[in-house]
């Protein structure tokens, strides 16, 4: 299989990039794929924490690009899932410690050993963002149903297009269907109308995410978690499987709306 480098990005901070990278990566590994997660949020690393791997870090991404160690030495194998690895960010340096060119070489080197290379992008549109997208084949844009998050996602999609990444797909995170119903939260249609990119999935607001993040066990490992289930479906879509958009609610009319949406998103 040809390997894919996917960057998970958003513009706005705190909307769920790291959560998405950890859960999508774990879900893909659960499906038997070989996956490496790259934390490019240098100076603010936390993908290792979300995965519960912090205490195993010896080398980091900056050591690798500066040839302080071999790439294989820096990769941390997740014992729970065969085929899941993490390349952690450095905590004590800043984003200029790595260049886009180095990132491109790094992701290319990883292609030979992995099916999916997921890059967790830092917030913002500066050097950290340019590093993260440098080696990517495609982008996954994460947005929450808020005007400011959608605005930043739109900006990011424009910048991705300018960098030649034209097939970005959207994950809407932290949707609360009750609030949408009351008209207190942007609905999916409104968001897609503005962003006009394909929808990869919708992840509901779920406190299991917070609990599992603190425990270092991604929510996809939790069968009962609704967000975890959403990420498992997203992982199947990433592999190319056609998975219908689930209704977040039980009423039929929402299902119909999703069907319409799917057509719109084509």
């Amino acid at each position: 299989m040809k390997s894919r480098v996917l960057v998970v990005t958003s513009g706005k901070g705190g909307v769920g990039k790291t959560t998405t990278t950890a859960n999508l990566g774990t879900a893909l590994a659960m499906m038997g794929k070989k996956v490496v997660l790259l934390d490019t949020d240098i100076g603010l690393r936390n993908l290792d924490v979300v995965l519960g791997l912090e205490n195993r870090i010896v080398f980091d991404i900056v050591d690798v690009v500066n040839a302080k160690c071999k790439l294989k030495q820096a990769l941390i194998r997740d014992k729970r899932f065969e085929g899941l690895c993490l390349l952690p960010a450095a905590q004590t340096k800043d984003k200029s410690a790595v260049t886009p060119h180095q990132m491109k070489n790094l992701t290319n080197e990883l292609r030979s050993d992995f099916d999916y290379i997921l890059v967790d992008c830092p917030a913002g549109i500066e050097q950290g963002f340019r590093n993260a997208i440098a080696g990517a084949d495609d982008a996954i844009v994460v947005a929450t149903p808020e005007v400011s998050s959608v605005r930043d996602a739109d900006r990011i999609i424009g910048l991705l297009e300018a960098a030649g990444l034209n097939k970005s797909r959207l994950i809407i995170n932290r949707l609360r269907s009750k609030m949408v119903k009351r008209g207190d939260m942007m609905n999916i249609e409104d968001i897609l109308d503005i962003l006009s990119i394909d929808l990869l999935g919708v992840v509901p607001e779920d406190e299991v995410i917070v609990i599992s993040t603190n425990r270092g066990e991604p929510a996809v490992m939790e069968n009962a978690s609704r967000a975890g289930a959403a990420y498992r479906r997203i992982a199947r879509r990433v592999t190319g499987e056609e998975v219908p958009m689930f209704n977040l609610d039980d009423s039929n009319n929402i299902l119909d709306r999703f069907k319409k949406l799917l057509k719109l998103a084509r």
Partner: peptide
């Protein structure tokens, strides 16, 4: 009103453009 040049933009303009 009459203007000499017309630019044709064949894409959507996103935030920041």
């Amino acid at each position: 009103p009459y203007y000499e040049d017309t630019a044709l933009i064949c894409k959507s303009l996103r935030s920041g453009q």
